[in-house]
């Protein structure tokens, strides 16, 4: 088991290293003078802001220093938690801008991922048992996983928000109230959360349900099931075993799907102007705020790595084979 975690941590460490290096390299590979073109594209009116940014960038990129020194400085700044200053919200540090948006993204992403995973697995296992349900649920599931997140979000916003008018379609809470600890505010948060949550949940749900359905069918063909059947074991016991074993690849699948799920959350937030990281990305791109964009990139990579590690730990808990030191599927 230490070997298993050792390997995983090595991979995550290397991944982080690669991500930071990409982040450092890309501005330096950009054709032309990045500082100049950024300032030009940033298109900011206040002259003092422009000057401050120029100083900041030149300092941060440190183009007069040797490359290795630039690279070392980049890492040093990173470890101080210094991701630079946002252009869009000048002079707020990027780290602060991100910190303000993160709760919204996590509040959307975590429930949607976890609930869709649990519900999708249950439904998939259930559908595998009934032919009529399997025949109707399967095409719907495939349709759902094939749906671009933003399109389902747009459809829901249009149908339930604009046409039916039952739910708000923009922002995280009503513009008429201030964030505070009150029932009104909480209710408003919940109202605004429902649609983005639902669109994320539905697309992911389709994928998990199909995955589980396929895994269950595979498990029900397995030799240990045949053996149990020839010994007359109850259907309940067989289904329990099959579900238990089919869950394992679904846990691994959760890790593999993280990137896609995060991407889904980002575009969903954009549709609903939900003030999370996705919304920030859009602002960063429209305002040519590269520091913000790079900061978000690093933040998401770190988040995904941590989530991966959590899933690895969970896998060890659910798959006994990893604990007896024989590897396992992950």
């Amino acid at each position: 088991m230490p070997r298993y975690f050792g390997r995983k941590l090595l991979i995550y460490g290397l991944t982080f290293f690669v991500a930071v290096t990409i982040n450092w390299m890309i501005p330096r590979f950009m054709p032309g003078d990045p500082v100049q073109s950024m300032l030009a594209r940033a298109n900011i009116a206040q002259p003092e802001a422009v000057e401050a940014m120029r100083v900041h960038y030149t300092d941060l990129f440190g183009f007069d220093l040797p490359l290795w020194k630039q690279y070392a400085n980049f890492w040093a700044a990173l470890f101080r938690g210094d991701l630079g200053i946002s252009i869009w919200l000048f002079p707020t540090p990027v780290a602060d801008v991100i910190a303000r948006a993160v709760p919204y993204t996590l509040g959307l992403l975590l429930p949607a991922v976890l609930l869709s995973w649990v519900a999708g697995n249950r439904f998939g296992a259930f559908a595998a048992r009934r032919k009529w349900l399997d025949n109707t649920a399967l095409p719907i599931g495939y349709l759902l996983t094939a749906t671009p997140y933003m399109w389902l979000a747009i459809l829901l916003a249009w149908g339930l928000g604009v046409v039916a008018g039952v739910l708000p379609v923009a922002g995280a809470y009503s513009f008429a109230i201030q964030p505070e600890w009150s029932w009104d505010f909480a209710g408003s948060l919940l109202q605004h959360w429902l649609l983005p949550f639902a669109s994320l949940f539905l697309v992911a749900f389709g994928g998990w349900a199909i995955g589980m359905r396929n895994m269950i069918i595979y498990e029900l063909e397995a030799d240990y099931v045949r053996y149990l059947r020839s010994l007359g074991a109850s259907g309940r016991l067989i289904r329990r075993y099959a579900f238990r074993n089919a869950i394992l690849p679904q846990v691994t699948g959760l890790a593999l799907q993280l990137g896609v799920l995060v991407a889904g959350a980002l575009v969903t937030e954009i549709v609903f102007s939900y003030p999370g990281l996705g919304h920030l990305i859009l602002q960063a791109i429209q305002n040519q705020d590269f520091f913000l964009l790079q900061g978000i990139f690093l933040f998401i990579v770190v988040g995904v790595l941590i989530a991966n590690f959590v899933i690895d730990v969970a896998y060890v808990v659910v798959d006994p084979r990893t604990r007896v030191g024989m590897g396992g599927a992950a």
């Binding site: 690669v18 991500a19 990409i22 990137g259 990305i281 964009l293 990139f297 998401i300 991966n308």
Partner: peptide, 10 residues
């Protein structure tokens, strides 16, 4: 493990 879309964004 690198989230593809986010890398592509950058």
């Amino acid at each position: 493990v690198l989230p593809a879309l986010v890398v592509l964004l950058i």
